[in-house]
Simulated assay, not measured.
Amino acid sequence: MGLEDDFLLEDEDDEKTVEFIKNFLPQDLKDKFTDDELYYFLDVMVDYYSTSGCLDAQPDADGYVNIDQDEIVEYIVKEAKKDGMGDFNPEDILFVVQGEMEYGNSLGQVD
C-alpha cells in the first residue's frame, strides 16, 4: 500500500471517529463543536499520545495502560488556546476525549 493509500485510510478513520464522537456527545453538546474543531481535537490527542510517553508505558498485571483523561483534556484546552482555536470548557472536552476512547474500545484498540 502506498503513502497516498495510508493517508486515505487515516482520513476515513478520522471521519468515522468524528461521527462516533458526535453520536457519543450528550444532546446539549451535539451542536457545540464544529467538525473542524473535532478533527482538531483528534489531531491534538494524537500529538498528546505520541509525546506524553503513554504509548510506551508498560501495561499493569491485567494488561491495562493507565491513560489519564484529565491530562488529555488539559492538554487539548491549553493547545487550543495557544493555537487560537478558542477557549473550551474542560468538562465539554472530556466528553470528546471519552468519545474517542470509546470509539477505540469499539474497535478493540483499547481496553
Rank of each mutant, 00 (worst) to 15 (best):
P26R: 10
E19K: 09
D70I: 08
I72S: 01
G2H: 09
F41C: 00
L25E: 07
P26Q: 08
D56Q: 14
Y75H: 12
G99M: 02
I72P: 02
A80F: 02
P90E: 08
F88S: 04
Y39L: 06
M45E: 09
N66L: 15
G108N: 06
E71S: 11
V18G: 03
D56A: 15
I67N: 09
V96R: 02
D47M: 09
C54R: 08
D6W: 15
I72T: 01
G99Y: 00
N105M: 12
K81T: 07
M1V: 05
D13G: 07
M101Q: 14
T51K: 11
D14F: 15
D47T: 09
D14P: 00
M101L: 15
D6E: 15
L107N: 08
L42N: 06
K32Q: 13
L9R: 15
I93S: 01
D6T: 12
G86M: 03
N23V: 02
L42K: 07
E4W: 12
M1L: 11
E71K: 12
M1T: 10
K32D: 11
K78Q: 14
Q109S: 13
G104P: 02
K32R: 14
E102L: 01
D60N: 10
L42Q: 06
Y40Q: 02
N23E: 12
L9F: 13
V44F: 08
K82D: 11
E91H: 14
I76M: 00
E71W: 03
D47E: 14
N89R: 04
D36Q: 14
K22I: 01
L38C: 05
D68R: 10
P26W: 04
S106A: 11
D47G: 05
S52T: 03
E15G: 03
D36E: 15
F24I: 03
D111L: 09
V18C: 04
L29M: 05
E100W: 08
S106K: 04
